[in-house]
Amino acid sequence: MKKYIVLSIITVIFLVTAMVAPNVIISNRPSVKVLTAQTDDIQTTVLTSGKVEETSKYNVKTDIPMVIKDMNIAVGDEVKKGDLLFTVDKDATAQNLIRIMNSGVTGGISQDTLLQYSNTENIENAFYADASGIVSSINLTDKVSNPNIPAIVIANTEKLQVKVSISEDIISGVSLGQSAVITGSGFKGREYKGTVTKIFPAATEMMGVASSQTVVNAIVSIDKPDKYLKPGFTAKVKIITDTGKNILIIPYESITQDENQKEYVYKIDNGRAVKHYIKTGREVENGVEILEGLKRGDRIAENPENIKGNLILVNTKAGDR
């Protein structure tokens, strides 16, 4: 009787062990998240900012100090070629020239020029715009122009650009001809395309609040500017330094290096983590480009730090990607 009891106990222990042992073995396996390698279009960029400015200016200058009679424009006004800018008080101008000649302080104006314009018949009645644009500055002293500086500056707003400063750490990725996207709070909700047209030959120091930074200035021309863009606006510029179509990308954290700095991932195959060496390419916003060693649809471990060795049985669960 005792013999049967012992056999029964052994049988029960065996059955319990047979049922529990696989679960114990499985529970001892490392758990890994699994993701599926996918392809995507990529775009690498350099982000910077700067000021919108005109590509060219038209300076309205006078040969002599002109006394302005009526100013027909103000800073910020849009003018068209041929528009009246200001009229001249010819009599007051001639009298002012005579005073200058008598004082002997001519400000660099020749005696011949002073004599010529002291005759009111030689003084222009009015000045007109020779180009279209926005009046960016008016430089008069008590309604009198200075022949040494422009009386009026007209900015050519048909062609605008952004002058940006790019850190020395990332300037190597920027080159002439690259496309750019321009946005800004002054023209919120609008987006303009542009092109890198100039990279300055020397770096400069840009002072910050607490420290300085070495930067290289560059010019990004703006395609098809309109009335919403104004010189002086602050602009954010995203320079597109590289693009790619259907590129195989995996997250940074799924890649491991061996003692020889060779990169590899763990490919999940029939419940085992199998080491696969890979060749990586460009680093992009959402991961790393894979050039060799994987293909689209391959299942890999997202958290390889849990795996020790090769051909290891693992417990798998779907990853976030």
Score class of each variant (00 low, 15 high):
Phe14Trp: 00
Lys80Glu: 14
Asn72Lys: 09
Leu160Trp: 07
Ala155Thr: 03
Gly76Ile: 08
Ile5Asn: 04
Ile170Arg: 11
Asp242Pro: 13
Ser221Ile: 01
His276Phe: 03
Ala273Cys: 05
Thr39Ser: 11
Thr183Asp: 08
Lys245Trp: 14
Lys159Leu: 09
Glu158Asp: 11
Ile10Tyr: 05
Ile64Gln: 02
Ser49Pro: 02
Lys224Pro: 02
Ile26Gln: 13
Gln95Cys: 03
Gly287Tyr: 11
Thr183Pro: 12
Val216Gln: 07
Ser165Val: 00
Lys262Asn: 00
Lys193Ala: 13
Arg272Ile: 03
Ser172Cys: 02
Ser136Pro: 10
Gly297Ala: 09
Arg296Tyr: 01
Ile73Pro: 01
Ile268Ser: 05
Ile240Glu: 14
Ser175Val: 11
Val284Gly: 11
Ala210Arg: 10
Ile154Glu: 08
Tyr117Ser: 11
Gly297Trp: 04
Asn306Thr: 13
Leu35Ser: 12
Pro65Ala: 02
Ser132Trp: 04
Thr243Asp: 12
Asn59Ala: 11
Asn102Ser: 09
Ala180Phe: 12
Ser110Gln: 09
Ala155Lys: 01
Gly244Glu: 10
Ile239Gly: 12
Lys33Trp: 06
Asp298Pro: 03
Ser132His: 02
Val24Trp: 15
Asn28Lys: 09
Gln161Ile: 01
Met71Asp: 04
Pro231Tyr: 08
Asn146Ser: 06
Ala202Met: 01
Lys193Phe: 10
Asp130Lys: 07
Ile268Arg: 05
Lys80Pro: 00
Asn59Glu: 15
Val88Ile: 13
Asn146Glu: 00
Ala235Pro: 07
Val174Lys: 02
Gly108Cys: 06
Ile109Leu: 09
Asp226Ala: 09
Ser145Ala: 07
Ser110Thr: 12
His276Thr: 07
Ser185Cys: 08
Asp223His: 04
Tyr4His: 08
Ile199Phe: 08
Ile9Val: 15
Pro201Ser: 05
Gln178Tyr: 12
Asp70Cys: 00
Ser185Phe: 10
Tyr128Trp: 05
Asn23Ile: 13
Ile249Gln: 07
Glu158Lys: 13
Arg272Cys: 02
Gly232Pro: 04
Ile64Met: 03
Gly287Phe: 11
Ser145Arg: 06
Thr87Met: 10
Ile199Ala: 05
Ser56Trp: 00
Asn303Glu: 14
Pro225Ile: 03
Gly76Phe: 09
